[in-house]
Amino acid sequence: MKTADLINRLTVDLKPVDYRRASRALGLAFAAGSLAAVAAICLTLGLRPDLREPHALGFLMLKLVFAAGVAATAFLLLLRLARPGQARRSSNLVAALPFVGIVLLAVLDLSATPGAQWAALIAGHAWPKCMVIILVMAAAPYALMVLALRWGAPTELWRTGALAGLLAGGVSASAYALACGDDSLPFVACWYSSAILMCGVIGGMLGQRLLRW
């Protein structure tokens, strides 16, 4: 086919398009994924029973600031990565900030405690459960983000997939925090972070296949 013919074909019957569609789809997917994760936690593990205590509430808030912070920064980066040509002007470093923050807090906390208690602070009560639940529950928000990214045109598939994975991990960890009774900074820095990062790596690997267009 001649290029001129192709141009004829493409310009016939041109429909107006809305450039906000991709962003809207991503926003919807983010919201729906968060709702799904919270609902899943409420229906299975239930909220932690001690939420009236200021200490428990304080720790819940801290976990939420960290995990939701990861999800939110990943979301902002994805809004750019969903559009061609904007990837280079957005930095991955922003997505690392919440991790740096939580690790710093954990180090401060550990330095103020005797070394004999470190192992207990880090391992908490239920670290394997924490990891598994965060990973499993990230599947739904990830799938929703991948679907939404189909309305966009990501050109850096690994990076886009990894950020979708981080977002899903952040959402999933936020929801898990509602049920999680492990209140120690090193615990969050260790297990929440690694679970979310694993979501990112898996997301990146899957993204290379799932996000092609």
């Binding site: 969903a82 280079r88 267009w213």
Partner: peptide, 15 residues
């Protein structure tokens, strides 16, 4: 994918 171009951004990098 013409709807993925955001008019507030430069066009050539998109292309």
């Amino acid at each position: 994918r013409r709807d993925t171009y955001d008019p507030s951004e430069p066009f050539t990098p998109w292309l």
